[in-house]
Each structure stands twice: as C-alpha cells, then as structure tokens.
Write a protein that binds this DNA or RNA. Structure first.
Ligand code: NAD
Ligand code: NAD
Lengths: 231, 231
DNA sequence: GAACGTTTGTGCACGTTTTCACAAGACGTC
DNA sequence: GACGTCTTGTGAAAACGTGCACAAACGTTC
C-alpha cells in the first residue's frame, strides 16, 4: 500500500492538461465524455488518453465513457490538488511580479504564500496582494505557512543561492525560471521553465524547414510540407 | 543531402542547455572541456552528452575533450542561431510586457521584432523599447521584418484566435503561454509553456512524498528518502 | 433476453531514449 | 617507438513511451 501504483512521468505531465479540459467541460455542463472526445480536446491519441486514465483506476464505463465530475475528482486526488498549495516566490522582479499578480493560479490549486527579494528597495512593496519580505525571512515565511513549493525568479547567477536557501528553509519542490541548472539534495524535486530553450527548439525547426526547402528546391515547390503540431 | 541527419527531439531539447553552459565557459576563458565536465555542469549523464554531440559530427578529440569555441559554433549552426530571430508577441499584458522587457533574449539568439494587442488602451504604449501595435496590423509587422516565430501571451480564450492570426500572417513557429491547447495546420510548430502544469507536476511529487511517508511510517522515520533532482 | 452498436481497458509490437561497456585514437613520457 | 593514461564515439542492451487492435463490458432496442 505504501508505494501505491507508480504513474509514468509522461502521464503525470498530461494529467494536468486533461484536468483543465475536464474542468472546463464540467463548467459548461458536460457530464460525460469519451476518450475520443477528450483526446480531441487535448490534442493527443485516444488510446493514450485511455492508458493514462487507466493508471488512476478503472473509472470509465464501457459503451458510455467517463463521468466528467468523477474524473476531475480522481485526477485532483492523484495530483494532490484536493487542497491548495501555498507557493513562495524568490525574486520580485518582472517575472516574480507577473507571477504574483497572476490570477490563473488559484483555479489550478496554488496560492502565493509569500514572496521574498534581496533588494531593500523592493522589500515592503505589495505585489499581487502579498507584501514582499526580505530573503533573510525566507525560513520564517516557509514555516509560518508550511510551504513546500518554491519558485525561483532571480537572475541566473543568484539561482543556485536561492535554491540552497529554499532547501534550507524546508522547501522540497522547486520550479526554476532562471536559465541555470541548479543542484539540490536527493529528495528535492526540480522543474524548470526556460523560455530561451523553448525558443531555440523552435528555431531549430525553422532552420530545418529552411534547409529542407533549399535541399528539395530541385524537386518540389518550396512551400511547407513537414508535419508537426499541437501541444 | 536535403534531409540532413535528423537529430532526436530529446537531443534538440538539451542542445540549448549545453550551448548556454559552453558559452559561459568560453566567457571565463575555458578553451576545452570533456564530456564528463559538461555532463556535470548540465546535470546529465556523460554518455548522453557524448551521444548528443555525436549527432553534430565527430568534433571531439580522444584523450582530450572538445574545443569549447568550436562546439559553441557547431551547436549554434545546428540550432539555426547563427543569426538573430525576430519574434512577435501577441498580447501586451503582464506576461507580454515581462517578455518584451527581458534582456536575456538577445544573448540567446532572439529579439522582439514586434508586439501587438487588441486593447486600444495598450496600443501605442512602448514596452521594452518596442511600440505596441494593434492586432490588425499583425501581418504588416510580420512581413516587414520577415518574422517566423510568434509568442502567444493572451488570455486562454483568445489563444486559438491569436494562433490563427499568427498563422494567417505567415508565422510558422509558435510558443504558447496560454493554458490552452491550440490547433495549427501541418507545417507549423508549436511549443508551450504552462506554468500551472509545471506546478501540478511538482504537487504530484509532493503528494507522493506525503503518501510514502504515511505508508512507511510503520517502518522508518518520516524524513525524506526518495531521490529525484536537477534539471 | 438476444442482438447490436459503442467504448473501455489492455496485451503486444514498435519506436525512441537512455545507459553500459569497450575498442579506437590522441597525447605524454621514457 | 613502445607504453600507459585519458577520453571519445558508438554498437548493443535495457528501459521507457506510443499506438494498434481487439476482447470484454455496458446500454439500448425490440
Ligand atoms: N522577464 C522575463 O520575461 C523572463 C523570461 C524568461 C526567463 N526569465 C528569467 O527569470 C528570472 C527573473 O527575471 P526578471 O526579468 O524578473 O529579472 P529582474 O532583474 O527583473 O528581477 C530579479 C529579481 O531578483 C532579485 N534578486 C536578486 N538576487 C536575489 C537573491 N539572491 N535572492 C532573492 N532575490 C534576488 C532582484 O532584486 C530582482 O528583484 C531571470 O533568471 C530571467 O533570466 C525572465
Ligand atoms: N502572468 C503570469 O504570471 C502568467 C503565468 C502563467 C501563464 N500566464 C498566461 O499568460 C497569458 C497572459 O497572461 P497575463 O498575465 O499577461 O494576462 P493579461 O490579462 O495581463 O494580458 C493579456 C493581454 O492580452 C490582450 N489580448 C486579449 N485578447 C487579445 C487578442 N485576441 N489579441 C491580442 N491581444 C489580446 C489583452 O488586451 C491583454 O493586454 C494568459 O493566458 C495567462 O494564463 C500568465
């Protein structure tokens, strides 16, 4: 019982997408949905949807589909979204402020439980309804609200320090916006969002399109032809 | 020749990370580097680094390592970063403004070539040195600077419309910040950055840690024990 | 209650990605 | 120029993820 069935990482990354779609469907009074319909909305294969959902248990009805409300509940439970998670943001610059002021968080299970910065000019100001505290108060902020998730929105050079501070304060999951690889002790999870990396991947595909058009111009028109889509 | 050796998607996603690290090393006068060292800095396995780099060609020297400057050049070339890509941003809200004002772009191969919004109150204002134009001028903006990459920073409900507008304007790669699946015709690449999804993945891991601690509390102390790290 | 259309749940084959393991090549030393 | 040390480049195995295809289960209709 303790280990519980393990869900593949690839599936874990898709469950939030299903969850959002299902919540939206529920809001417009859709009560049941087939794997085919959900797959269409999520931009994936129907078999994949079924296999993903099967990791949660057998909650569909053959010949009918899945009950939307129940599925929402099950995914929430599996992702640990039955309660809201307070998050602490380190770095109150452009990014930190945009995040703190973002309303789309609450709906999806998170609240900004605190925000800290090292710059005295920023400490004390209020962003997104939360007062910016000094980095030195991080542990206090984390403990007061029992926070376990931290977001790094400092410049790259300060990111490792921020990670160390978060870990020292007791945070066990970190989402890193800085374009830097951070090291954390075992038992701490790290996710990253690197804008430039995403753009560079797109640039690669653009480049390939250009090369392909050049290479095949002897044969066909240089219009597009390569497939790849959705997300 | 036209197809050129195809690089696995997983490798394409790591090349930007190597590139950033190598550029940093070059800046501090490191001239050569082994796969072991690069792996350490990138937080991955050394064999993976070697295999990834092998897709670019045999540019290392056995017994010695790789020449940093040459590797930087090769990765840039492969990713299509030998020139700067102008990018157009759709949506000049919090996110769009943070992106437009972000300086870290230029270093990594991109410039903000334009930014558009539908809100007349925002049109005409200047963010990040670029004047916000109206959505209706999108095609004009895209064509004037020959832009092929677009970023969507509108609310979720407007995202599909923004994607359609970008495609109609001639953009062939899109990075989507809105929490919505967008559909595009074949030949157009899409990348997404969904903050809430990333946080929900972390929440899942937190939840598992909690469940594991509960389940094993009969046996061991409820401290951390599960591994997982880096990025 | 049998026949039928529908949709799930999953075994299986396939493709992709990771990791191991080691031969081959480069360099330095004697 | 032979030897030892180091590090690459890459087959081959293992692990992981995807998608097909179909039996099993459900609801409906007659
Ligand atoms: N702005 C963007 O659109 C964007 C896009 C992609 C990535 N990023 C990344 O996000 C991070 C933040 O970007 P930004 O534009 O908000 O930068 P910013 O300079 O506006 O803000 C950084 C903030 O971090 C604070 N800070 C510095 N050192 C700190 C420390 N040790 N502890 C706590 N706070 C500290 C600074 O005082 C400042 O308020 C950067 O790493 C950047 O590369 C930003
Ligand atoms: N702010 C954040 O930290 C954050 C975090 C994660 C995701 N996001 C996502 O990024 C997107 C933008 O967020 P935001 O905080 O900047 O929102 P925002 O409301 O501040 O800005 C949205 C902007 O888009 C413009 N817009 C609306 N419809 C448009 C259209 N059809 N064409 C062009 N422009 C249009 C609006 O006028 C507004 O200026 C949202 O989808 C949000 O979910 C934001």
């Amino acid at each position: 019982m303790q280990t519980r069935r393990r869900i593949p990482e690839a599936t874990v990354a898709r469950l939030p997408v299903y969850l959002r779609i299902l919540s939206e469907q529920f809001d417009i009074d859709v009560t049941k949905i087939s794997s085919e319909e959900l797959a269409e909305l999520a931009g994936v294969n129907a078999a994949k949807v079924r296999k993903d959902l099967s990791y949660l248990g057998s909650y569909g009805t053959r010949g009918v589909g899945y009950e939307v409300e129940f599925l929402v509940y099950q995914i929430r439970r599996e992702l640990g979204l039955t309660h809201n998670w307070p998050v602490v943001i380190v770095g109150a610059g452009n990014m930190g402020q945009a995040l703190a002021g973002y309303n789309g968080f609450g709906d999806r299970g998170f609240t900004v439980g605190g925000i800290v910065d090292i710059d005295d000019a920023k400490v004390g100001s209020v962003v997104g309804g939360v007062r910016v505290r000094h980095l030195s108060e991080l542990t206090q902020v984390v403990e007061a609200r029992n926070i376990s998730i931290g977001v790094i929105a400092t410049p790259g050079l300060a990111a490792q320090g921020a990670a160390d501070a978060l870990v020292a304060a007791g945070v066990t999951s970190i989402l890193n916006f800085a374009p830097t690889v951070i090291n954390v002790p075992p038992g701490v999870s790290v996710g990253k969002v690197d804008l430039a990396v995403e753009l560079q991947i797109l640039a690669y595909h653009e480049q390939r399109r250009i090369n392909a058009a050049k290479g095949s111009s002897l044969v066909s028109v240089p219009g597009e032809s390569r497939r790849r889509a959705s997300a």
